[in-house]
Design a protein around this nucleic acid. Structure first.
Length: 420
RNA sequence: GUGGCCGUAGCUCAACUGGUUAGAGCAUCGGGUUGUGAUCCCGAAGGCUGGGGGUUCGAGUCCCCUCGGUCACCCCA
C-alpha cells in the first residue's frame, strides 16, 4: 500500500461521523449548562497578535515553544491561540462588558508539541471565564459548572483536585523557600528538574519523574506561605464545594502550567484513563492577567476542558455514546425519470430527513443502502408507480410490509408510518 | 527536542527458523430473485508488503537509510 500523497499534518486529524456527532452533542450539553449558569457565548478569533499570548509568561512552555506563530502580508506577527483565556481577557479589555462578565466558549486551540494519545496539535476545548469578581463563591460556581457538565454526560470517575497558589505578593517568599529546599539536595534531583528549577521553581512540583518523588514530597507547601486573605478565600471555596456536595481533594502541589494563575487552581483528572494525559480539564483564578493585557485591575477565574480527552474518558467509562441519527425515509428510484428527485425534495420540505442512492444503482443495491441507513421507511418509485401516479411505501422493520398509495397522499402516509 | 514500538487490500489482521502465484474476515460490486433490504449461497474486483539501498540462488521476513504512524518523556486540555 502506498501512502496517499497528502496526509493530515502530524497532530491533526479528520474527525468522522460518529465522532463528530458526539462532539456536537458534548458541546450542546456544555452550552446548556453554561447558559443555565448565566454565561453567554463568546467566539474570539483563532489567532491574535502574538504578544497577547507571550504575555502569558516567560516560563510557560505553551507560549515559549509551542506557539504557532505566523506573519501576515503586512508583517504583523500573529499566533494561533494555544488556549482561550488570553483571548477572552483581551476581548474584555477591548469591549468592556458589564462585570462580572461571564463568558463560555467552544472551539479549537493549537499547540506545537509532539502528539500522543489525548494530545493533539489542534484540539478542541470548551470552557468558561468570569472577569470582574473577587468573590470566591465565583470560583466555586465555575468549578460547579464543570462538575455538573461532567455529571451530565455521565462521567463518574472524574476527580477534582484543588489548591491555592496565593497572590502574586506571596510568590517570592515561597519561591525562595522552594529554591532553598531543592538546592540543598541538588544531586538527587533529576537533570530536567534542575533545569526547571532555574526557569520556574514552582513547576518542579509538577515533576512526574520517580527520581524527584521524594524531594518533591518533602518540599515546603504553598499553603503555608499564602496571605491570610488568600487562605481564607481558599477556605471559602472549600466550604462552597462542600455545600454543593462536590467532592474534591486538596492537592498541595498542584501548580498548573500557565504562569498567570493565582489563588484557586484546580484540575479534573479521569481515573478511568490509563493514558498519560489524564487531565480532562483545568483552570483557576488569574487576578493579574487582565491588567497584564493592558486592562484595568480586574480579577478573573475560569477553566477549559479538553473535548478529546473528555471523550476518551467517556470511552473508558463506556458512557456518552450518542448515535448519529438515521434518516427517516430512504427513497428508492426504479425509474429513469426525475420522480425520485422530486419525491425526495417534497419529503424534505415536509420536514422529514430523507436520503437516497445515486448513480443508477440496482434496486437491490438501493434496498441494501436503505437497510444500512436504518431508515424505518422506504419510498419506492418505479415505472409502474409513475404510470399510476402512486408510490410504494415499505416498512423496513419486521416482515417488510409494503403498500401502494396515491402520490399526493405520500407525505401524510409516510408520517403515519413514522407515527408522527 | 529525546526515546521505545510499529508500517502487508478501503478497514482489522494472517503468512513456520528467509523458500513457488502474499491470504482471511469485514466493507465494496455483481449474480442466485428480468423491481425489493438484515440472513444464506456463488462469484468478482481490490497489493510495487510505505519508499530507497544492501545481504542472498531467493526478502513481506535479515541489515542500513529515509518517510510515516503510534506510545512515552517533557508539558499540558
Amino acid at each position: 500500500m502506498s501512502r496517499p500523497l497528502f496526509q493530515a499534518t502530524p497532530g491533526t486529524r479528520d474527525l468522522f461521523s460518529p465522532h463528530t456527532d458526539r462532539m456536537w452533542e458534548l458541546v450542546e450539553v456544555f452550552r446548556d449548562e453554561a447558559m443555565l449558569a448565566g454565561f453567554a457565548q463568546i467566539i474570539p478569533p483563532m489567532f491574535e497578535d502574538i504578544a497577547v499570548f507571550t504575555r502569558l509568561g516567560e516560563s510557560t512552555d505553551v507560549v515559549t515553544k509551542e506557539l504557532y506563530d505566523l506573519e501576515d502580508n503586512g508583517g504583523r506577527r500573529l499566533a494561533l491561540r494555544p488556549e482561550f483565556t488570553a483571548s477572552v481577557c483581551r476581548a474584555y479589555v477591548q469591549e468592556r462588558p458589564l462585570i462580572p462578565w461571564k463568558a463560555w466558549y467552544a472551539g479549537p486551540a493549537f499547540r506545537q508539541e509532539r502528539p500522543q494519545r489525548g494530545r493533539y496539535r489542534q484540539f478542541d476545548q470548551v470552557g468558561a471565564e468570569v472577569i470582574g469578581s473577587h468573590d470566591p463563591d465565583i470560583d466555586t460556581e465555575v468549578i460547579a459548572l464543570a462538575a455538573s457538565f461532567y455529571r451530565r454526560i455521565g462521567l463518574n470517575q472524574v476527580v477534582l483536585l484543588i489548591n491555592t497558589l496565593g497572590d502574586q505578593a506571596d510568590r517570592p517568599r515561597y519561591l525562595e523557600a522552594l529554591r532553598g529546599h531543592f538546592s540543598a539536595d541538588l544531586d538527587s534531583l533529576s537533570e530536567q528538574s534542575r533545569h526547571t528549577l532555574e526557569a520556574n521553581p514552582l513547576r518542579v512540583l509538577d515533576s512526574k519523574r520517580p527520581a524527584d518523588a521524594d524531594l518533591v514530597a518533602a518540599a515546603p507547601l504553598l499553603i503555608d506561605y499564602v496571605s491570610d486573605d488568600a487562605a481564607s478565600a481558599f477556605q471559602r471555596v472549600q466550604g462552597g464545594l462542600r455545600a454543593l456536595e462536590i467532592p474534591f481533594t486538596i492537592a498541595p502541589r498542584l501548580v498548573r502550567g500557565l504562569d498567570y494563575y493565582t489563588r484557586t487552581a484546580f484540575e479534573f483528572a479521569s481515573s478511568a484513563l490509563d493514558a498519560a494525559q489524564n487531565a480532562v480539564g483545568g483552570g483557576g483564578r488569574y487576578d493579574g492577567l487582565v491588567a497584564d493585557l493592558g486592562g484595568p485591575e480586574e480579577p478573573g477565574v475560569g477553566f477549559a476542558l479538553g473535548v478529546d480527552r473528555t471523550l476518551l474518558a467517556c470511552d473508558s467509562e463506556g458512557v456518552f455514546d450518542p448515535q448519529p441519527a438515521s434518516p427517516q425515509v430512504w427513497v428508492v428510484a426504479a425509474t429513469a425519470g426525475t420522480e425520485a428527485l422530486q419525491l425526495t425534495a417534497e419529503l424534505r420540505r415536509a420536514g422529514l430527513s430523507v436520503n437516497r442512492s445515486f448513480d443508477g444503482k440496482s434496486m437491490k443495491a438501493q434496498m441494501k443502502a436503505a437497510n444500512r441507513s436504518a431508515a424505518p421507511v422506504a419510498v419506492i418509485v418505479g415505472d409502474q408507480e409513475v404510470a399510476d401516479d402512486t408510490v410504494s411505501l415499505r416498512l423496513m422493520q419486521g416482515d417488510g410490509n409494503q403498500a401502494v398509495v396515491a402520490r399526493r397522499e405520500m407525505v401524510s402516509k409516510v408520517k403515519e408510518l413514522l407515527q408522527l
